[in-house]
């Protein structure tokens, strides 16, 4: 018995040794990306400590004096911070409601297109806006939607209607913001769903056909369940981003008259923190944002697992 187990241990050890002998170079290669993450991601992260300090750019993060929670207090006491938090959440939730289901629907529709060439052309056309920067899109939006010189309003004025303030009225601006975002990203976001759809076993469709399923029933009972896990994962990742917001989109689209609904965390941080050289304040807001995002992400992941999905870890 003991002889047997000793032999087993020896065998295991030699197995491990031979494993390392075979694969050490792969582990060595792993060191480089690891070094990258440590040097450029984790080491800079230590500077987060500036949120508890009175950052002085000439002394550096470590030499600056401690300030406790002053910057958090300052941020939380600021009306603009709460306003930008509200707007960030509002615009992101709106994006989620409009922008999340649309690519799925579009992918399902594209999948049903029989004429492959038309499918490919349509796909290409709807991807294209993704490659335009928000600065260009804001220029296009201006040309189209400006109250007097914009194409749409010129048309309305000439037809005898009142011009519509797409960019100047708060409620209409929100709609413009959401729809421009949809227009830009919807095509791009279908790619991942289309890829998932191609992964569905075609035998399932054949089986469904034999069982007498129609076109719509095939979509409902085969395609949608087939891409369910993809949908859930993307939803979780979107939840993680609910408090994070890109900078260029709101910044390029906002204007003087809609700041009450258009000022979001990223533009608030840029204006008050970076341009005002209050780096500690900026870092405090950023830290808050990251912590809340992490909570959202873990909650969404936990929920997904509860419902029997795989989650992202």
């Amino acid at each position: 018995m003991s002889v047997n187990s000793e032999a087993l241990v020896a065998k295991r050890v030699s197995k491990r040794r031979s494993y390392f002998r075979r694969t050490w170079s792969l582990y060595l290669m792993l060191l480089l990306p690891l070094a990258y993450f440590i040097v450029f991601r984790y080491v800079p992260m230590t500077n987060i400590v500036m949120v508890f300090k009175n950052y002085n750019m000439f002394k550096g993060v470590w030499e600056s004096e401690w300030a406790g929670f002053v910057w958090f207090q300052k941020a939380f006491a600021s009306k603009d911070f709460w306003l930008s938090l509200r707007n960030t959440l509002g615009l992101n939730i709106l994006d989620l409601i409009i922008g999340f289901p649309m690519p799925i629907i579009l992918a399902l529709l594209l999948n049903e297109v029989v004429y492959k060439r038309l499918k490919r052309i349509t796909q290409t056309i709807i991807y294209l806006p993704h490659f335009l920067s928000w600065i260009i899109i804001s220029g296009i939006a201006f040309q189209l939607l400006a109250p007097k010189s914009g194409v749409i309003n010129t048309f309305l004025i000439n037809a005898g209607f009142e011009p519509i303030e797409f960019l100047g009225k708060e409620s209409l601006w929100i709609g413009t913001y959401a729809l421009l975002g949809l227009w830009k990203e919807v095509g791009w976001n279908t790619i991942i769903y289309l890829a998932a759809i191609t992964g569905i076993n075609t035998e399932l469709y054949e089986a469904a056909e034999i069982d007498g399923a129609g076109r719509f029933q095939k979509v409902w009972h085969v395609t949608l369940p087939g891409i369910r896990s993809t949908i859930i994962i993307l939803l979780i990742m979107n939840m993680g981003r609910i408090l994070g917001i890109e900078f260029d989109r709101p910044f390029a689209l906002q204007n003087s008259s809609v700041m009450k609904v258009a000022d979001v965390i990223s533009t608030y941080v840029y204006r008050v923190g970076i341009r005002g050289l209050q780096f500690s304040l900026t870092a405090a807001v950023g830290l808050f944002q990251s912590v809340v995002s992490l909570v959202f992400l873990t909650t969404a992941n936990w929920l997904a697992k509860k419902f029997g999905e795989r989650g992202i870890w």
Binding site: I38, V39, F40, V43, G60, E63
Partner: peptide, 10 residues
């Protein structure tokens, strides 16, 4: 590399 990243403006 870590030293280079860590030290300040001095």
């Amino acid at each position: 590399a870590a030293c280079g990243g860590g030290s300040g403006p001095a």
